[in-house]
C-alpha cells in the first residue's frame, strides 16, 4: 500500500479515513484501512459492481454513519455526524439523476432555497453553463437521460460546494453529454478548486479527469496512486490486471 501524496508531504488532508467499516445486515460491505483526500484534487474510484463505491460516497457525504472506524473532515471528527455547515460543503450527484417534481429551474434552485440563498441569477447562469437555458420552465422529469443528468450536476454545482462527489455521472450517456459534463467538472476544479471524487467504470474517464485513482475490491482499497503511476506501474497484481483491461466486471 502506497501512502497518499498529502501524507508524504505532511500536508493536512481534507478527508482522513481510518479503519472505516460499514456492515449491512451482518455483511461487511466496506472496509477501508486508510484513505486521505487532498483539498482540490480529483480522485477517481474504480472497481467492480457491488464493491462498496456508492457506500463509500454516502459515508463521505455524511449521509450515513460508519459501523466502526473514524472519519475526519477538515480536521474535525465527523464519524457519528457532521454539523450542518460542514454537511452543506459537500454534495453528491447520484447514479440516477433523482430529480424532484417541478421545473428544471425549480430543481436547480433546490439547494439554494434550502439555504435561503438568492436564486435567480445563479440558476440562470448554471442553466446556461449546462446548455439548458431554453428549458428552464420544462417539467424536469420529462427530460432525456442526458439532460436530466446535466440538471442534477447543475443543481449540485449551483450551491458552490467545496467537495463534489460524483457517482457514475456519465453512465449511459452519449459522447456529447459525457464531454460536456467532464468539461464542467474540470473547469470547476480548476477555477474554484472544488475537490472531486468520481466513481467510474470507465478507464478512459479516470485517465482524462483524475489526478489520482483508487481501486476498490470487495470493500477494500487495494491500491491508490497518481493516475500515471496507477496505470503505468501498478504495485498490486490486481491493479495491474485492471490497468491492462483484463479484469472483467
Amino acid at each position: 500500500m502506497r501512502l497518499g501524496i498529502g501524507e508524504v508531504l505532511g500536508m493536512s488532508s481534507l478527508y482522513a479515513l481510518e479503519k472505516l467499516h460499514k456492515v449491512y445486515d451482518g455483511r461487511a460491505v466496506l472496509a477501508v484501512d486508510t484513505l486521505q483526500v487532498r483539498e482540490g484534487e480529483m480522485l477517481a474510484l474504480v472497481g467492480p459492481s457491488g464493491t462498496g463505491k456508492s457506500t463509500l460516497l454516502r459515508l463521505m457525504n455524511f449521509l450515513e454513519a460508519p459501523t466502526s472506524g473514524t472519519l475526519h473532515y477538515r480536521a474535525q471528527d465527523v464519524t457519528a455526524s457532521a454539523p450542518l455547515e460542514l454537511r452543506r460543503e459537500v454534495t453528491t450527484v447520484f447514479q440516477r439523476p433523482l430529480l424532484l417534481r417541478g421545473s428544471v429551474a425549480d430543481n436547480i434552485a433546490f439547494g439554494l432555497r434550502l439555504r435561503s440563498a438568492p436564486v435567480n441569477g445563479n440558476v440562470a447562469h448554471m442553466l446556461r453553463r449546462v446548455g439548458l437555458a431554453n428549458m428552464a420552465a420544462a417539467p424536469a422529469r420529462k427530460l432525456s437521460g442526458g439532460e436530466m443528468q446535466r440538471v442534477a450536476l447543475a443543481r449540485a454545482l449551483v450551491i458552490e460546494p467545496r467537495v463534489l462527489l460524483l457517482d457514475e455521472p456519465t453512465a449511459n450517456l452519449d459522447p456529447y453529454n459525457v464531454s460536456l459534463i467532464e468539461d464542467i467538472v474540470r473547469e470547476q476544479n480548476k477555477t474554484r478548486g472544488v475537490t472531486v471524487i468520481v466513481v467510474t467504470h470507465n478507464v478512459f474517464q479516470a485517465k482524462r479527469l483524475a489526478h489520482r485513482v483508487g481501486l476498490l475490491l470487495n470493500g477494500q482499497l487495494v491500491e491508490i496512486a497518481e493516475t500515471a503511476a496507477f496505470f503505468d506501474s501498478p504495485q498490486d497484481p490486481r491493479t495491474a490486471a485492471f490497468a491492462r483491461g483484463e479484469m472483467v466486471y
Partner: peptide, 14 residues
Amino acid sequence: DPALRLQARALGAT
C-alpha cells in the same frame, strides 16, 4: 423514492 430523501440531504437539507 427513498433515494430522493438521500438526495435532499446531500444537497444540504435539514
